[in-house]
């Protein structure tokens, strides 16, 4: 009869005459193998659970947006939606382009030229997120009749950040220029953002 008072461990058995027999060490491997395989299995099960929190297929399908530019006249802008955030699409007039090019880049808080912020051959199309880089408000200026601020671009009413005709920060607390998302022109009048 096995008891713990006699100091019997799982590696020992009681023989027919009542003596204690040591089992060879190699039998432990089975227990360790079983436990490790079980641990691996448990780890693998966690993966789909965690992955289910990643964006689902319907959200990913909306990760890129097509915008039709045909109706936007020079000097006009529209507000579209990109990944559920506001997107400003502006058709710059030659005067606005010249105004943007005239600014010395070294004087800017976030130095970028208009060429760097637009696509090759489509310098008149300024496509930026409509999210102020300070704390996330939606700046004014894209809608009809909205204030364009002191620099003729966009103006954020929350804390006074002012952006120029190239969407670059000129005044106020915002640290960076309005974000330019990845986009490409599939034709002269259609652009795919994202």
């Amino acid at each position: 009869m096995a008891t713990f008072e006699e100091g019997l461990t799982p590696e020992q058995t009681v023989g027919p005459g009542g003596e204690i027999i040591e089992n060879p060490r190699r039998r432990d491997y089975l227990t360790y193998a079983a436990a490790s395989v079980a641990a691996v299995g448990a780890g693998v099960v966690v993966l789909p659970l965690v992955n289910s929190m990643n964006p689902s297929a319907d959200v990913l399908a909306q990760s890129s947006t097509e915008v039709n530019l045909a109706a936007i006249e020079p000097g006009q802008a529209i507000k579209a939606s990109f990944r559920k955030q506001p997107l400003f699409v502006r058709n710059l007039t030659p005067a606005e382009i010249a105004q943007a090019d005239a600014v010395p880049v070294s004087s800017l808080r976030d130095p970028q030229t208009l060429d760097q912020r637009t696509a090759e051959g489509h310098k008149n199309w300024l496509i930026t997120l409509g999210v102020c880089t300070h704390l996330g408000c939606v700046p004014l200026g894209a809608g009809e009749g909205e204030s364009r601020g002191p620099f003729g671009g966009y103006f954020c009413p929350c804390h006074g950040s002012a952006y120029d005709t190239a969407g670059r920060i000129r005044q106020g607390p915002a640290p960076k220029n309005l974000e330019v998302p990845k986009y490409n022109f599939t034709s002269d009048t259609v652009v795919v953002v994202g």
């Binding site: 020992q12 058995t13 432990d28 089975l30 227990t31 436990a35």
Partner: peptide, 13 residues
């Protein structure tokens, strides 16, 4: 493997 481990643990008991 779990069955093998079970037999190992219970051997002689």
């Amino acid at each position: 493997l779990a069955y093998g481990a079970y037999l190992t643990v219970w051997r002689g008991m």
